[in-house]
Nucleic acid binder design. Sequence first.
DNA 1: ATGAAAGCGCTAACAA
DNA 2: TTGTTAGCGCTTTCAT
Lengths: 338, 338
Amino acid sequence: MVVNLKEVARHAQVSVATASRVLSGSDYPVNDDMRRRVEASANELGYVPNAQAQGLLWGNPRAVGLVVGDVGDPYFSGMVEGLQALATELQYLVTVVNTRRSLRHELDAFRTLRAHRVGIAILAGSGLVRPEYPEAMTVALQAAKDAGEAVVTVGRHTLGVEVSTVEVDNVEAGRLLGRHLRDLGHADVGVLAGSMDLTSTVDRVKGLREVLGEGLVVREIEATRDGGWNAAGPLLVEHPGLTALVGTADQMAIGASAWLRADGRRVPDEISVAGCNDIWVSRDLVPSLTTVHLPLQEMGAAALRLGIAARDGQIGHEHLQVELVVRESTGPAAPSRQ
Amino acid sequence: MVVNLKEVARHAQVSVATASRVLSGSDYPVNDDMRRRVEASANELGYVPNAQAQGLLWGNPRAVGLVVGDVGDPYFSGMVEGLQALATELQYLVTVVNTRRSLRHELDAFRTLRAHRVGIAILAGSGLVRPEYPEAMTVALQAAKDAGEAVVTVGRHTLGVEVSTVEVDNVEAGRLLGRHLRDLGHADVGVLAGSMDLTSTVDRVKGLREVLGEGLVVREIEATRDGGWNAAGPLLVEHPGLTALVGTADQMAIGASAWLRADGRRVPDEISVAGCNDIWVSRDLVPSLTTVHLPLQEMGAAALRLGIAARDGQIGHEHLQVELVVRESTGPAAPSRQ
DNA sequence: ATGAAAGCGCTAACAA
DNA sequence: TTGTTAGCGCTTTCAT
């Protein structure tokens, strides 16, 4: 059904070896007549080389696998965007696997990518803090390294294995937000936090707590716009004294903001709101969202660059800066209502 | 370097056949001792089956390839999100290739996916209107069909080949926006249009023109938030009589809105703004964005479902409805300033 | 310059 | 129940 090299060779009346030499772009000398005949046949029959067979021989040097928590999350899709841009330029094939933010799925995902011999595996999902996790992952990573595969982790704690990393200081991100709010007079701050299984969430909360201490009320919610929308009200009912709300990712802050507006509360006059990541739309909201900028696209691109270097045995680390972006959604603390 | 089945077999002191039977999940009966030995060895050596070799034998039934114009575009990432969700559930591996919205790249992308024997190829990038394009693509599609591969196109005109399609009526989307604006008294409307090479753009403009006729001023711009931001000012300088701006995709409308606000023009009192696609954030803007809702996630999921059916020879068509969502960014036409 | 044949890692007949 | 072997599509020695 599907045309293979043998058929092309037969159609062109040459041996498979010759056909291969022409079609695989080998620099082996081939008579011009035959070369033409082979090319014509391949065209006519619609021959497409089987990358799997080629991969069996060569390995798959131009394939990257990307493990993300959820492509729908702007944090990940920003990274995917940056990685894809570079990948397209460099002619790399990108395969994306979702973990649905779960331990078991992440290991599975990693195995799947290894099975497909991607050569470069990028773990973009933030690391899980569960104790049993790093251990299992360490074993898997070591195996990959031993097999000569490149592994890059993005925005997570390093594991027991030396791999290339793209690092973002999430604790610092939390600190920056904390200081900004403290300087505005906020003492009682509610945090809408994504999964506390993720190091990124835990770190951001840690940074906030360093500055704001006991004034922090943390609520773990689904890391989506709707999660923020649904959680804002109940949180404020339970803790009416809160003068600011921080989302550990922008979309939660956006949801919370929307709910506050719908509830008739003015931001930032009555309550301040801040996020984290600086997704593209944050600056265009009204009020525009105060947040911590992460160079998401650059993180994706850096991961691929490091992965390519790692294939050549060069383990590297890229430390990218986070930056507080003060916009309109934060202002001086209103007098506590409590 | 990398552990293969032979080494596992040797380590477990069994034949490769036995090892394969255990590790590939065959239901072939194997002695419990041996089974345990093989599993232990595989574990110890960190064996990961080579999916390429397996693919050579079986084909790759659980792989989907997705061709998109640009993963950074919310239109595509919405679709990718929906498709990934279903793919993860069904244990499909998703490979995404970017075309950068170009003819040559799209054919290349399609070939690449075929080379990797994805089994299901989904063309999500909107079709190009250039005359030479459909012809080249038709040939490629026919070849894929002949090879028994499933092809699904999303949101583009059908080509010369019978393939499964997810259809969205872009002309109707344009009409809905046009009527809404006309009913509000808008006669002079500026359109910030994405690439006019794309059928989706052309169709939406066509729908708008059907209703608004000569009152339409179309400007082709880069289909991004910044494209909208940059184009709004110049367009209004050249055509000060415009009372409404429509983006053929939400992000352009969002950029334009932001520029208008920065320029001190009130939306919708002084000028109305509308978009298309209804990306997740559109409802949370201030003013919230009037747009045409496309079920992006559902489009992605439907594409995969149709692809799976197509592998079984069932060509199908899913026609998804578009729906006008009237929000706050559109209002009665202000008296023309001209 | 060309072709025959070995072999990449794996599975599935086929034998034993 | 186990092992031997052919072969998936391709590239690449090795002869010719």
